[in-house]
Structures are given as structure tokens and as C-alpha cells.
Nucleic acid binder design. Structure first.
Lengths: 208, 208
DNA sequence: GTGTCAAACTGAACTGAACTCAGGTTGTGA
DNA sequence: TCACAACCTGAGTTCAGTTCAGTTTGACAC
């Protein structure tokens, strides 16, 4: 049950919100969102199904919350990794490496995010779902802008050949996140190798 | 309603299978699989909901069929594009270009495939669903093998530096298909530009 | 032309998972 | 020790997907 992390601070002392999020990440990550029964998450936390509705308006609201939190974490990690880097190539390398410096739990969150990104395209009818969706969309936009900025800076400094920075940013992002579609911990290729290979790909894509 | 394409040949003279597939592609592509009601597809074709079950065992069976057909089409296109190319770099370029030489209807199919790939990971209980899932998985494996082969050949001929060809193939595929997540016809960047940019990225990733 | 039969279809009923309702319990903090 | 908000529950509702028990249709043989 691991009542750890994911705390957003605004919870009561006997709140199970964090436990629900953790359980949901494990279920959604392993069986997929549609593949997991909402009641199974309740069972794993040790409460009745209806108790879930005290914390989340709907099952989708929980999913969107997980996605938003993961986007926030990803973006913070990017910001932290690139903060000190003055050389554009080094900044690019740091950003790519940061994307793969994740725990197994975070891998699940990336996978969930990846597999349900299309949810963000269509408006939701439930109020809280829509709020989370908007927040997630805004984070996606900011992350795209972060990458575009990194590329634009590198191009204006002459470190990267000039190309459409926005489309190139999308391509880099697509390349990096696509890893979570097939990568499995304990698989044939260790994550460190994947990380090195993708880092090199990013640099060659952009800087040559 | 456009009773065109997608015919697999083994249908009766008054079959609406092709019309259902076309309508389903349009609905699933625009609103997402979970976002479209199965009855809405029936409505678009002009039949009652229950008539759908004459052609597909379940809604998911229809989705898996669409995905399998699109994988088949993609693979054929790869094979045709790379057939005559003896130079590895030219073969790589041709493969990348072929991936973007698609109609608007095929773009929808790529999007559907992309958004529901995680379905292929977990076994299905329905017999026909499971058959389509196995076929789709096999096609994915073959497509990965096609790319790996292309890379291995280029490396052994000295046209590409030696790197893990399987992981690099996954990266190329991930880069290419990730485009369908954000690309929209009539958007700011025309597909021809995207195609050129991604083609260049592929070559730099692999050949430098 | 006419009869046959599988293919094609239908309205009514069923199912199961997400969700609502109308309260009951609990433990924190005043 | 009492109040009350946070937390929880079992019983019921809803609705999309699916099954059932047939009816209609039209291609083809004769």
C-alpha cells in the first residue's frame, strides 16, 4: 500500500489520497486504464469502492491527476537538469539524460501518460476532470516551449544548424517518450544503455 | 458512408463490413475509441446497433481489425519503398519518406493505431479479438525486424556506424510514429515539411 | 418466374462496471 | 467530552456494450 510520495500537501491527516494514487499508478501501469476496474484500486487500498469518490470525482479524474503530476515532475526535472548549462549541446545532453533518470514507479507514470495522452485533446464534462485536463495541457505546452527555447538558443548561438525549432522539439520529445512504450525494467537492454543511445541520437539530430 | 477500400475480398455482395470499418476509423480517429459510442458507428452506417455484431464480435474486435489492417498497409509500404534501394542511406530515406506518403484516411488509421498500441500487450478473452491481436503483434514484430535488418545491413556495409540495431530501430520507429500524435492536416506545418525534417533526423541519427 | 436459404438485420432484454444516494462512523482539535 | 468535518458504506441507478429470439432480404439454382 506504501503511503508514500505524491503528497500535494493539502490533505487531512487520515487521507488516503496518496495511497489511492500509488495503487492506481500500479494498476493503470500494469493493466492499462480501461483494463483495470476502479473497484480493484479500492480493494488494493483497502477501502470500499464508493470511498474513492470522496477523493476523485471519477476514475478518469484520477487518471488525469496522475498524468498532470507526472508532467509536472518531468518538467521540473528538465528545468533542474538544464539550469546550470551554458553550452547548448551540454544542455541538450543533460535534458535527454534527465528524462531517463527515473525510478520504476516513475516509469509506470510515464507509461500511463504516454498511453493516455489522447485524453487531453477532447474537453471533459466533469468539472474536476476538465480542470486537471487544462492543467495537463498547459504543462504539455510549457514542456514543448522549454524544448523549443533550448533549440532556438542553440541555433542563434551557432551551436545547432538552423531548422524549424518547434517541429524539431516535437520530434525530440516524441523520440524520448516513445521509449516508455516498449522499455520494460529487466528487459534485454538496460535503461542506462537506452539512455546513452537516445542521448546520442538527440545530439546528432539537432547538432549536425 | 463511402463504401470504398478496406475490402478483404471474403465478403458477401451486400456486406457492410467495409462501410463499418470506414465509419469506425472516422469516429475512433476523431473522438477516440472510448469516446465514440458503438451505436454511433451503426448510426453513421445506417443500420441498428445489433447489426454490427454480425460483422464484429465486439467493439474492440473492430478496433483491433483496424489496427491490424493499418500495420499490414504500413509494412507493405515499407517493403515496396525499400525494395529497389541498394544504398543503405537511400533505403533509409525511402523508408522514412514512405511513412509520410499517406492519405488523410490513413492518417486517421495511424493515429488510432498509435493511441491504442497498448491493447496489444494484454491477452483478450474473446476469440476473434485474440486472433486479431496476435496477428497485429506479429506484424509489429516483423516491422521491427524490417527496420533492424535495414540498419544491420547498413552497419555491415560500413554505411552506418555500428550501434545496437534493435534499439536504434525502435528509436527510429518511435520518432516517426510519434508525428501522428500531434500532426493535424491543415495545421501550421505542412506534412511535406514534417516529412523532410524527420527524414533528415533519421539519417543523422543513424548515419553519422 | 419462383422457391430456398444463408446472409443481413431488428427490438427487447440482459450485464457489469462506473457512479449516486442517503445516510453511518471516526478521530481530531476546541 | 463534545462537535463536526472528514471519511466511509451498502443499496440502488445508469448506460454502453452485448445477447437473444426471432424476422426480413435478395442472390442463386431450377
Amino acid at each position: 500500500m506504501t503511503t508514500a510520495r505524491v503528497s500535494t500537501g493539502d490533505e487531512g491527516p487520515r487521507s488516503k489520497r496518496a495511497a489511492i494514487l500509488t495503487a492506481a499508478v500500479e494498476c493503470f501501469g500494469e493493466f492499462g486504464f480501461e483494463g483495470t476496474k476502479w473497484s480493484a484500486v479500492a480493494g488494493r487500498v483497502g477501502i470500499g469502492q464508493t470511498a474513492l469518490y470522496h477523493y476523485f470525482e471519477t476514475k478518469t479524474h484520477c487518471l488525469l491527476t496522475i498524468m498532470r503530476l507526472e508532467l509536472q515532475r518531468s518538467r521540473d526535472q528538465f528545468t533542474e537538469a538544464t539550469a546550470g548549462q551554458s553550452d547548448p549541446v551540454e544542455a541538450l545532453r543533460a535534458a535527454a539524460r534527465a528524462a531517463f533518470a527515473v525510478s520504476e514507479h516513475e516509469i509506470l507514470q510515464m507509461r500511463i501518460l504516454q498511453n493516455n495522452l489522447s485524453l487531453l485533446a477532447v474537453p471533459r464534462t466533469s468539472a474536476k476532470e476538465e480542470t486537471e485536463r487544462q492543467a495537463a495541457r498547459e504543462l504539455v505546452r510549457q514542456i514543448e516551449r522549454d524544448w523549443t527555447r533550448l533549440l532556438t538558443r542553440g541555433m542563434s548561438e551557432g551551436a545547432f544548424p538552423v531548422r524549424d525549432p518547434h517541429t524539431l522539439g516535437q520530434a525530440l520529445l516524441g523520440l524520448i517518450v516513445s521509449v516508455w512504450r516498449w522499455y520494460r525494467p529487466g528487459g534485454p537492454t538496460p535503461l542506462s544503455e537506452v539512455s546513452d543511445l537516445i542521448e546520442g541520437c538527440c545530439v546528432r539530430m539537432v547538432a549536425e
